[in-house]
Design a protein around this nucleic acid. Structure first.
Lengths: 196, 196
DNA sequence: CCCGTTCTAGAATAGCGGTTCGCCAAGGTC
DNA sequence: GACCTTGGCGAACCGCTATTCTAGAACGGG
């Protein structure tokens, strides 16, 4: 019942992603999102109560999608091979999803800056759970047991470090050189070794 | 001749740095800078023609200051020891200068986004020169000769990677754990080794 | 075919923040 | 002391963008 929607929430998020690569978060305005979609600004507010909630949803969707491939890569039985796969996933992801990459680069994770509707807040607070579990599991398999230092090293080696490898290319729009994968993998492996 | 200034350019930049840690670049407004200084907004414009030029100056000062310690650390005769020192410099710098760190984290390097007054544009375009030379020199000493891949690796291992180590702490305001230095140093060393 | 509901549509509103302007103050010089 | 120069001061201006509001359109059900 009711008039059929012309602009779904997903379509709006997609339009936001399209806008993101040129100009970044500063240039991401409701007007531009609507423009990209051929919609009036008012329609955006039928789906999202505010811009910050819109961005939060976009961030959530982005992170969850990224985590699919990440968790999959990390799941490989050989722990060292898993590292290589995680690195490769990060590199290809940032190549194929510049909009998402740009979002993560600039927005990072601003949980708690605002007060979101209940449902969103819950999803936000649970988003890191799967990854934390996977990292703990990786520590178990690699070291035999997880300690705070090892967990920290795992997070650094498997997330922050590979992310650093693509960060500059995301922000500057330059292509990744072929060596990048090898350099990054080696660095990550030895970051993990350093916490042994 | 003329009325003596109450607010020097340096003082304005310092005030901007004070504002930066809480709220980041989005919260860095002319009004807030002036407020922190106890000055009216108009006075800011006696020193800087626009906000973007102000930020450019602040960025420039920040980078040049950082480079002092960086170049000094990199200058050590033992190439591996130099890496350790570079990493340590990055870690202590970000601990002691959260405002500067936050600026770099959020502003990165947006050269070319705007058109600056001649003098600023020149300084901007030459800022990377010393570092590029130092990295090339490091490659010479480490590998015997510099190649594009090795230069890329050096920049990654000595700048992007150590920066990644502090990035999350800068944005989230969390303290660096003691392991961080060791992990980062090992990762950097092996990133360099991977380009051998 | 009337009604409630879900949406589109886009003009109007509100407020923030950069920038400008006019005026006055405080030194120096003649 | 008149005057020139450099600055402080803060109100006013202006554009931009999030957000709201009012009207009306498209659909399903009774």
């Amino acid at each position: 019942m009711g008039r059929p929607p012309r602009f779904s929430a997903e379509a709006i998020l997609d339009a936001a992603l399209d806008v993101l690569p040129d100009g970044g978060l500063d240039a991401l305005t409701i007007g531009r999102i609507a423009g990209r979609l051929g919609a009036p600004t008012g329609s955006i507010y039928h789906r999202f109560p505010s811009k910050s909630v819109l961005i939060a949803h976009l961030w959530l969707r982005t992170v969850l999608r990224f985590q699919e491939g990440f968790l999959d890569a990390l799941d490989h039985p050989d722990v060292d091979e898993a590292v290589g796969r995680v690195v490769r996933h990060m590199l290809t992801w940032s190549r194929e999803c510049p909009g998402e990459g740009r979002l993560v680069a600039e927005h990072w994770n601003r949980q708690g800056d605002e007060d979101w509707p209940e449902e969103l807040a819950v999803r936000m607070s649970t988003v890191d759970g799967r990854v934390a579990a996977a990292l703990a599991d990786h520590c178990e398999r690699r070291y035999g047991a997880a300690t705070p230092d090892r967990l920290y090293a795992a997070r650094f080696a498997l997330m922050h470090l590979p992310y650093a490898a693509v960060h500059v290319h995301l922000l500057e729009g330059t292509p990744q050189p072929p060596v990048l994968e090898h350099i990054t993998t080696e660095a990550s492996l030895h970051a993990l070794a350093a916490a042994g």
